[in-house]
Every structure is written in structure tokens, then in C-alpha cells.
Simulated scan of single mutants.
Amino acid sequence: MMESMFLALMFTCLNPTVLLAAQTQLIGSHQPIVALVGDDVLLPCHLEPAVSATYETVVWSKAALEPKYVHHKDGRLLFEKQDPSYFLRTRLFMDELQRGNVSMKISKVELSDAGTYKCSLPAMKKEAEVELIVGTSKR
């Protein structure tokens, strides 16, 4: 029993991925993001220090939605888990995931998109929030 506990502890201490995940923070935006109806908007979220999220499940959700997922990537985008109002309007930048950038773009912003979004990496037990404020232009 002691030997297996020792080996588990050694693996955890010597495994750089485990150590990096423990020391890494997921950072959203400290300031609200402002967009106008019809604009495309970027909701920032990244790992600091930069650690690859290429093989991580990335989840963007918004409270009071059912289903609650705005974007759910688990190797590929899972449309069946996505709220229909965001269908084909969200994307991650796949080439940026290796640098820890899990920011999400929302295309053609709608008034109903306003609110607080949660960016999370469930396997790393990391999450961050980003508030989106949506306005209308006076034309």
C-alpha cells in the first residue's frame, strides 16, 4: 500500500503536465466586452503560463441557457450539446489552442447574447468568466 502511494506521488511530482496544470490559471477578461448587434466579437480566455489546450475539452457556457453550452469542443465541436441560438455562430481558433488560447468568437451578435459566459477546461479543473454587453447602434 505504501509503495503504491509513493509511486503515485512520484509520478505526480515528476510529471510536468500535472505540475503545469496545477500552476496554470485560466484568465478571462477583467473588463466587460462590448459589442453592437450584428458585430462579430471575441471573448478572450487563455491559460497562463501558456500551456497547450489542443487535446483538452473546451467548454463555453452561459447561465440560463438550456442546453447551457454555447460551444463544446471535445476533439470536435459537439453540435448536439450546443444551444440552438448559437448554431454556426461560434468558433475557437484551433491553431491557437497549442498556445493556451481558448478564446471564442461569436459571429453576428444578437441582443440575447448579452450576459456572463464561463470558459472552462474540465479536465484541468479551470474556469474563467467573461461578461458581454450588447448594444444597438442609432442609425
Rank of each mutant, 00 (worst) to 15 (best):
T57K: 10
R91E: 15
I106F: 04
A50M: 06
Y117D: 04
K62C: 06
T57Q: 11
M1T: 09
D39I: 05
P16H: 06
T17L: 12
G38F: 10
C119D: 03
I133F: 12
L26N: 00
K126Y: 03
P44I: 09
R76Q: 14
L9Q: 09
T136S: 14
M10N: 09
A50V: 03
A8N: 14
L97P: 05
R89D: 10
P67A: 05
M104W: 01
C119M: 06
Y86T: 01
M124V: 02
I133W: 13
M124W: 15
E131Y: 03
A22W: 11
K118L: 13
G100W: 01
D83L: 05
L65Y: 05
Q31C: 03
P122Q: 12
L20C: 07
G100T: 04
C45E: 02
A21Y: 01
E129A: 08
L88F: 10
K108W: 06
T17Q: 11
S61T: 14
R139D: 13
C45H: 01
T24F: 02
F11Q: 11
P44D: 07
D95G: 07
F6W: 02
D40A: 13
S61V: 02
L20D: 06
L121W: 01
E129Q: 14
D40V: 01
M104P: 00
I33W: 05
L92P: 01
M124R: 15
A53D: 06
Q98D: 09
S85R: 15
M124Q: 14
A35I: 05
V134I: 11
A128H: 04
E80N: 15
V41C: 08
K138F: 07
K73E: 06
L36S: 14
Y69I: 00
K68V: 01
I33H: 02
R89L: 11
S112F: 05
K108Q: 15
N101E: 12
M2F: 09
L14E: 10
Y69P: 03
H71Q: 07
S112Q: 14
